[in-house]
C-alpha cells in the first residue's frame, strides 16, 4: 500500500469532517491500527482541529455538558432511590420471615424448657432418693440408739445387782438341750427377791415361755416365776429357805406348777460360803 498517496488523497481530512460513511470510517480505522504513519497523521490533524476550535471559540456551548451531567446526576439519584424503595418493599414475605423467626425462637425455648425440666426432674428424684436414704439411716440409727440404750440399761441393771453386796450371784450354764445357753440369777438374801438376767437363751417357740425354778435339797423344784425373753434384769418371785441351785425350763406360756426337767436349758449352783 502506498501510504503517501493514501494520505495525500485527503481521506483523513474527510474522516474528521464527517464526510465519510460508516463503512469508510471503519476502513480508515483498520488502516490506522495497521500503519503507525496513518495513526500519526490522524492524531496530528485531530489535534490541529481541536486547537483551532478552542482558539476560535468553535467549541460547543459548555452548557450542553453541564446539562448532561445534571441529567445523569438526576438519573443516578432516581436509580438509587428506586433501589432503596425496592429494597424496602418486602411486605409479601416479611410476615413469613417473622413467623419463621418466632417459630425458631419458640422451638429453641421449648428445647431449653424440656431440657431444664428433665434436669430439674432428675435432681428432684436424686434429692428424694437421698431423703429416703437419710430417713432409712435415721431409722437405723434410732434402732441402734434404742438397742444401745437397752444394752446400757441391761449392763447397768446387771452391774447394780453384781455390785449389790446383799445379792447372791448364780451363773447358770447351758445343759444338753442348749449347751451354749447361759443366764444369771441374783437372789437378795435380805429381801429374798429373785432377779434373772438372760445372757444367751434361744428364742422360745410360739406359745411357750421360760420359767425359773429354785432347787432345794431333797425337794421338788420351787416355782420362781416365768419371765420374758428380754435382756433386761427382771424381778421374779420371793424365795426363802435353803436354796441349792437355780434352773430354767421351757414351759407352756403362763408357766407350769411342775418343772419339765427334760426341758432344762440352764442350771447353776450357789457357791458354798
Amino acid at each position: 500500500m502506498n501510504i503517501e498517496k493514501y494520505l495525500a488523497s485527503g481521506v483523513i481530512d474527510s474522516y474528521w469532517a464527517g464526510e465519510l460513511s460508516d463503512e469508510e470510517m471503519q476502513e480508515v480505522d483498520a488502516l490506522t491500527m495497521e500503519f503507525p504513519q496513518i495513526q500519526s497523521e490522524m492524531d496530528e490533524i485531530h489535534e490541529a482541529i481541536v486547537q483551532f476550535a478552542k482558539d476560535t471559540q468553535n467549541m460547543p456551548n459548555s452548557e450542553i455538558l453541564q446539562k448532561v451531567e445534571l441529567q445523569i446526576g438526576h438519573s443516578e439519584q432516581e436509580a438509587f432511590l428506586k433501589v432503596l424503595e425496592e429494597t424496602q418493599e418486602e411486605p409479601d414475605y416479611k410476615p413469613l420471615n417473622m413467623i419463621n423467626v418466632w417459630s425458631i425462637a419458640a422451638t429453641i425455648l421449648l428445647i431449653f424448657s424440656v431440657s431444664f425440666n428433665y434436669i430439674f426432674y432428675q435432681k428432684a428424684r436424686d434429692v428424694q432418693h437421698q431423703i429416703q436414704a437419710l430417713n432409712m439411716e435415721n431409722t437405723q440409727l434410732a434402732e441402734q440408739v434404742g438397742q444401745n440404750k437397752a444394752a446400757l440399761q441391761y449392763a447397768e441393771g446387771r452391774m447394780a445387782h453384781l455390785l449389790n453386796e446383799d445379792n447372791i450371784h448364780v451363773h447358770m450354764v447351758g445343759l444338753a438341750v442348749a449347751p451354749d445357753a447361759s443366764a444369771d440369777v441374783f437372789w437378795n438374801r435380805v429381801s429374798n427377791n429373785v432377779f434373772i438376767s438372760i445372757e444367751d437363751l434361744p428364742e422360745p417357740p410360739h406359745g411357750h415361755q421360760y420359767q425359773l425354778w429354785a432347787i432345794k435339797p431333797g425337794k421338788a423344784p420351787v416355782d420362781a416365776g416365768v419371765f420374758e425373753h428380754t435382756k433386761n434384769v427382771q424381778q421374779l418371785k420371793v424365795i426363802t429357805g435353803n436354796i441349792e441351785a437355780f434352773a430354767v425350763t421351757l414351759e407352756k406360756e403362763g408357766g407350769s406348777p411342775v418343772a419339765t426337767v427334760n426341758q432344762t436349758f440352764v442350771k447353776g449352783f450357789l457357791k458354798k460360803s
Binding site: G18, H46, I49, V50, M59, P60, I64, L65, E69, I72
Partner: peptide, 21 residues
C-alpha cells in the same frame, strides 16, 4: 464522568459539526 468532559473537549465540535449537517 471524566469520560464525558473529555469527549466533549476532544470530539464535541466535530460531533456537533456532523449533527449540524
Amino acid at each position: 464522568k471524566k469520560a464525558l468532559s473529555l469527549i466533549f473537549e476532544r470530539y464535541g465540535s466535530l460531533l456537533l459539526n456532523v449533527i449540524l449537517k
